[in-house]
């Protein structure tokens, strides 16, 4: 599983990256969360056809758009994807 946070480099993007790391840790997964910002991040957001930042992706698919300050919610999403 590949988890990434895409952002334009603002404080909300950084915050989402931090709580995603925390969620992964709390689930006991050994996944390195990627943090892609700047031009790279913007390009990826555009490739997904989105216009908001930050975006949480799992296996290159958008699973959360915009920032929600809720670690539990992120855990829920990851668990859903794990099946």
């Amino acid at each position: 599983m590949k988890i990434a946070v895409l952002g334009s480099g603002c404080s909300n993007c950084k915050r989402l990256y931090e709580i995603t790391q925390k969620a992964v840790e709390e689930l006991g997964l050994s996944i390195q969360v990627e943090y892609i910002t700047g031009d790279e991040g913007l390009k990826k957001i555009m490739e997904l056809g989105l216009m908001q930042s930050p975006v949480l992706t799992i296996d290159d698919e958008a699973v959360m758009v915009g920032f929600i300050d809720d670690t539990e919610k992120i855990k829920e999403i990851i668990n859903e994807k794990l099946g």
Partner: peptide
């Protein structure tokens, strides 16, 4: 409006 999204927008 979130200034985070102004550039992607």
């Amino acid at each position: 409006f979130c200034s985070c999204s102004s550039i992607p927008l």
